[in-house]
């Protein structure tokens, strides 16, 4: 398990693949955002799509296994995820698009979006997890550029970074299933929560819509971040 000493050497071999997770869309329904938020930390969503049709007892068993593999979720969150999986990826799913859970309304609660989609990795108080997920509280990167956090949420971010003096080398998935209004709300939330102070103009849904049009890979966002510094 002492693996750090190898990285330097192994990275020198010139790995240049632009690894990027497949952009897989799940059927819309209550709880889908939580599934996007929790299930892409360790694997992409193809496992879920491939397992479509599992019976309720089987999904329950899958969810229990995922805890062995490191899933962190509250009992309430697990209940919501299980309900989603057994309903929309069970043997008899309802017809598509019957339940639109996408918050398209103007009054989206950024704190709620954060809790459902981001807190699993970045922590309920935005402190992150040392060595695994960078903090957002006190993180200067999110205040440097109006669009940067929007691009991260839309496209993901992968590659080595430093935040609050700590090194990270993770791969955040794209959360582009969120609506323009939800992304604007969550970015405005993280910029001003936990003592964060922002001098930037709040992000609007219109700005998110504009940024959504440029298609970037997580590595492109990493390069964008480097240019920002």
């Amino acid at each position: 398990m002492p693996y750090f000493r190898l990285w330097a050497g192994l990275l020198l071999i010139g790995v240049c693949a632009i690894a990027q997770a497949a952009d897989i869309q799940l059927p819309k329904g209550p709880g889908v955002n939580l599934v996007y938020a929790k299930c892409q930390t360790c694997h992409d969503l193809q496992y879920l799509v491939d397992s479509k049709g599992l019976m309720a007892a089987q999904w329950q068993s899958v969810l229990a296994s995922m805890q062995d593999y490191g899933l962190e979720a509250t009992p309430q969150e697990k209940k919501t995820i299980l309900k989603y999986l057994t309903t929309y990826l069970g043997p008899n799913p309802p017809p598509a698009a019957s339940a639109s859970a996408g918050g398209q309304t103007a009054n989206v609660d950024g704190a709620k979006v954060f809790k459902e989609n981001c807190s699993g990795c970045h922590g309920p108080n935005g402190k992150g997890q040392p060595g695994y997920f960078p903090p957002l509280a006190g993180n200067g990167d999110i205040q440097r550029d109006r669009a940067f956090p929007v691009l991260v949420v839309l496209n993901g971010l992968s590659g080595p970074i430093k935040a609050e003096g700590q090194a990270f080398n993770g791969a955040m998935p794209a959360l582009d299933h969120l609506s323009d209004a939800e992304i604007a709300a969550v970015v405005n939330h993280i910029r001003t929560a936990w003592g964060n102070q922002s001098r930037l103009k709040p992000v609007t849904a219109k700005l998110v819509a504009k940024e959504r049009k440029r298609s970037m890979t997580p590595a492109d966002v990493h390069a964008y971040r480097a240019d920002m510094h």
Binding site: I13, V15, A19, Q20, A171
Partner: peptide, 14 residues
């Protein structure tokens, strides 16, 4: 990817 990117090649180790 990310911290596991070192694995993602058919080239031998350095």
């Amino acid at each position: 990817e990310g911290a596991g990117k070192w694995m993602a090649t058919t080239a031998p180790a350095d």
